[in-house]
Simulated assay, not measured.
Amino acid sequence: MAKKSLLSLLLLLACLLTYAQQPDAAGLKQLKHDQDTLQVLSEDIFSGKGDDGRERAKDAFIPMLVRALKTKYSFRFPFDSLKTIAIKYPQDSAFRIFTWALERENGFYRHFGAIQMNTADGQLKLFPLFDASDYITNPDTISDNKSWMGCLYYNIIHRHYFNQEFYTLFGWDANNPRSQKKIVEMLTFKNGAPVFGGPFFSFAEDSTPKPTRNRFIIEYKKESTATLNYNKELDMIVYDHLISETNEPMKKFTYVSDMDYEGFKWQAGKWMHVNKIFHDAIPMGKGAPTPQPLDQKKKIMTQPKSAEDYEQTPKKPATKKKQ
């Protein structure tokens, strides 16, 4: 208990130090101005007219974001008006990840992103993320920021083991017109640079052990929903068991949930597979959030909701048309 209390105190002190330095008045004014421009561009990336319009917005957004982040202590500025850009922090605030997506008219997606490190002197240290998923034939690989499995990150879990920091990333890939994906992978840093993936997803305790995976991916039907997220109450990663609704297991776009759950538990520096999590272990409407918009046409890609969230959201009254 004493060790846990000390660790909690150290983490609290680290968080306090993280927010000790802020942009000065001139820097804050510039960041607010840049944010207004970025907000317009980000909305055009998301819903601009045609491929050309969205591409132009993307081409303008990236250098503008880099310019804004060059402002000293920009890490402290939340950019919270950028509703179509996912910005996620780990518990220790060592960095933050920006991710966003560009949808093409053919229904396929390309992802963009960057990791901004939390530097002591407030200077910018940035790792751009280059989506190479269209060219990666084997997704079970270890890669760097130049060969990134593009997605929108919706959660980060921080673990400390043997003097090393491990960050488990949860991402959603809208993929194509027929299927979508969810990805869980480990982010570590080697010599200060990001490394995506690694042998951290073990199936050694299964009745029929399978090879350890460098990342774990589920792919399923476009119109369906599926869970893949960290469950705080169970202290586990929980995900839907998927089956082909047409009994065609080779066709991932036919996969749907069968309402059973599997998971991973953190054990000795790895996520160990748990073959079955009973329904009564997960409180109804709580333990297994589904970070996936139900309506693809009206989605806010950085704030996906569960089915329960949609049911509880008050509906807006219909507005009367002017005569």
Rank of each mutant, 00 (worst) to 15 (best):
L187D: 01
L242I: 02
R213H: 04
Q21S: 15
F203S: 07
P249A: 13
A226I: 07
T212F: 02
K222M: 15
A204Q: 08
K251G: 00
A268G: 03
A86P: 05
F112D: 05
P194T: 13
R56Q: 09
T18Y: 14
I45F: 01
K305F: 01
I217V: 13
E185H: 01
R178I: 09
K252Y: 13
L152K: 07
M186R: 02
T168M: 15
F203G: 03
C15E: 01
A174M: 12
F127T: 02
Q323R: 05
E185F: 08
A25C: 09
L294W: 04
S143M: 12
T313K: 12
K276G: 02
Q303A: 12
Q21T: 10
K32Q: 14
N145Y: 15
A86H: 04
S133D: 06
T246L: 15
E219N: 11
K270C: 03
K315L: 10
E245A: 12
E311Y: 04
P199S: 09
E43D: 13
K222N: 13
F278L: 14
A26P: 00
P128K: 10
K265Q: 06
K70M: 03
R215D: 06
S143V: 10
F108S: 14
F130N: 09
S179V: 09
G197L: 04
P78N: 09
W172Y: 14
V66C: 11
F108N: 12
P289S: 06
F108C: 14
G113E: 05
P194E: 10
G48I: 05
T302M: 13
F170E: 03
K3Y: 08
A281M: 12
F75G: 04
N118T: 02
K190I: 14
D34C: 11
T18I: 02
K49A: 04
I277P: 00
L242K: 01
M186A: 13
W100G: 00
K298I: 01
P199W: 06
S8M: 10
Y167K: 01
Y109V: 01
Y135H: 04
P293T: 11
Y109I: 00
F98H: 08
A60C: 07
Q303L: 12
Q21I: 06
S202N: 06
K299W: 07
V195S: 07
K270V: 11
L124C: 05
N145R: 14
R56S: 06
L10P: 00
K315H: 02
I183W: 05
Q292F: 06
I237M: 07
K276A: 11
I157L: 15
S47I: 02
Y73Q: 10
E103Y: 09
I300R: 08
K322V: 08
K320C: 08
E223K: 15
P249M: 11
P90D: 08
W266E: 00
S207Y: 08
A26I: 02
N214T: 04
K125R: 12
T18M: 11
S244W: 11
P63H: 06
Q91M: 10
Q35G: 09
T84K: 13
A281W: 02
D206G: 03
D295A: 06
T84F: 14
K146M: 15
Y310I: 03
D36G: 07
A120I: 12
W100Y: 12
P78F: 12
A132N: 08
